[in-house]
Amino acid sequence: MIVLDIASVVLLAAGALFVVSGGVGLLRFPDFYTRVHAAGITDSAGAGLILLGLLLRTPSWETGVRLLVIMLFLALTGPTASYVLAFAARRDGVPIWREGDPRR
């Protein structure tokens, strides 16, 4: 049991780290396309690790199944939303940031 607890703590800590760093990135990166990367990290790595960490401490199998369903859902919709957003922004002509440009 103690092994599971430690693994869960490690996973949760890693997930929290990814989530916060993605949040900071969303605020500090210079343009829309770079920010997509920051937001994407929190949806995939952050959410995945936190849900895995929770999975290791589930009281019953029903809860575990629900966690897995959420994980599957986020794993499918997160990257799709990021891709579609970036695609639409490109099509609408949102400019790409280059070294030396002002932040926007």
Binding site: G22, L26, F32, R35, V36, A39, D43, A81, L85
Partner: peptide, 14 residues
């Protein structure tokens, strides 16, 4: 602009 806001709100949702 719109796209930055959608991105932020999508992330807030997850």
């Amino acid at each position: 602009g719109r796209y930055n806001r959608i991105l932020a709100i999508n992330m807030f949702g997850t």
